[in-house]
Amino acid sequence: MTISRRKFLKGTAAAGALAASPFYINSALAQSRELRIYAWAGYITNEMLDDFRAKTGINATFTPYGTNDELLNSLRATDGSGFDIIMPTVDRVPGYLDFDLIQPLDESRINWDGALESAITGSEVGGVVGGKRYFAPSDWGTEAIAYNTEWTNINRDTLSYGDLWKPEHADGVTVRGHSALAGIGLWLEKQGKLPYPFLESYKNETAMRANFDVILKVATEHKHMIAQFWDTENEAQGAFRANGAIIGQTWDSTAFNLIQEGEPIAYAAPVEGAMAWMEGFVMPKNAQNVDAVYEFINWYYTPEAGAMFVKATGYNSTSRGADALLPPETKAFFQNSYTQRDLDNLWWWPIQEPWYVALRNEYQDRYLSA
């Protein structure tokens, strides 16, 4: 992707003052109907729903999903109906347009002063298509290496995705199928073992298939080391709690939540770069309560709402000023997990077009069934 990553991260530290009141729609129509939110499991808490209702007078319901594919398939099954607001990752937004499932946002109705400018600019790749914005950024996070500090011997200075597959981690690795293939791809590329540059192959199906052939061979050779594959947040945490995992390629939230429970877990970025993603608010084409969608986005773009989100998830909010309201343990996790080198070296997921998702799923299925 062509976003300036350093500019994005610098922007997250440059939060300024909010406008006095972001809630300026508050129409009777919005209050007369429920806002139907479809978002990642754990992203919307009762505390957040109560605060949103108190600030706007609007009742909202929350339905969780566990994966981007689950979200897309649900919307395809209903032709973009059933919900008023969804939260895909920005790299998947063009795919929703290919299936005619979403509608552009009216940027004049959003209080952009409440969002980090760097996130707004950074989300233009994927979030703005054909000159129209479909995506209002909400949060960002990473997928890297979580490990048990008592049962592993990790050198954070040289940590690699390849370290997952060291013999001493046998029977103790947890990964997500398709992103494990990406991690192995980054590892092999750094060794000069891929036929095509990995990032560029996201634009060319022939090149990606050739790369995946090499990646799948290596992945299959090490599959015996897997304690558990994960697909959702709960599964990733369960791999460490109950199924013998001592190291894994997981989301940052997995490590954050385990640490809060007192587990001896740490989280670190490998030398190939932590896989970074951005999520945001998108409106399905058949949303019924459009006014309430803008109320919700503007409510979220306040320091208090952004801080509630971070408290619930461990991810990083794009709400301006939220970082100042975070509890000490959340700030400590970020500081302990990322050096400045890590932040400068993030590997952002490229746009994942439908052809790539189909190909990725094909190789993931071959990996899981090998």
Rank of each mutant, 00 (worst) to 15 (best):
Q191C: 02
L181I: 05
E205V: 13
L188S: 03
G141K: 10
D157A: 14
E150Q: 14
G177P: 12
R209K: 15
S138H: 14
A182Y: 11
N204W: 04
G183E: 03
D157T: 11
K203Y: 12
E205N: 10
M208N: 12
P197I: 07
G162P: 07
N148Y: 00
G172A: 12
N148S: 02
N204D: 14
L194Q: 01
E205C: 06
Y147I: 00
S201T: 08
S179Q: 12
R156F: 13
H178A: 14
G183W: 07
K193I: 00
G177C: 12
Y202I: 01
Y161H: 05
F135I: 04
K166W: 04
G141R: 09
L181Y: 08
D171M: 01
R156M: 10
G177I: 10
L194N: 02
G183C: 03
P167Q: 08
F135Q: 05
A136H: 07
Y202T: 03
E189D: 06
A207T: 05
E168R: 14
P197G: 05
L199F: 15
L188Y: 04
M208F: 15
S160M: 10
S201I: 11
S138F: 15
L159V: 03
S179N: 13
R156S: 11
T152L: 09
Y134A: 12
M208D: 06
G162V: 06
D157F: 10
P195C: 01
T174R: 01
L199N: 11
T142L: 05
A144W: 10
G183R: 07
E143R: 11
A180D: 13
K193R: 08
L199C: 03
G177D: 13
I154H: 14
S179T: 15
W151A: 09
D163I: 02
S160C: 08
S138A: 15
E189Y: 06
E150T: 08
L188H: 04
K193F: 01
L188P: 06
I154F: 13
D163Q: 01
P197H: 09
R176Q: 14
G185H: 09
E168C: 09
R156N: 12
T152K: 10
L186Y: 13
W140E: 11
P167T: 08
T142S: 12
A180P: 10
A207R: 10
L159D: 05
A146P: 00
A144I: 06
P167L: 10
L186Q: 14
A136I: 07
L186P: 08
H178C: 09
T158F: 03
E189I: 05
G141Q: 05
A180R: 11
L159N: 03
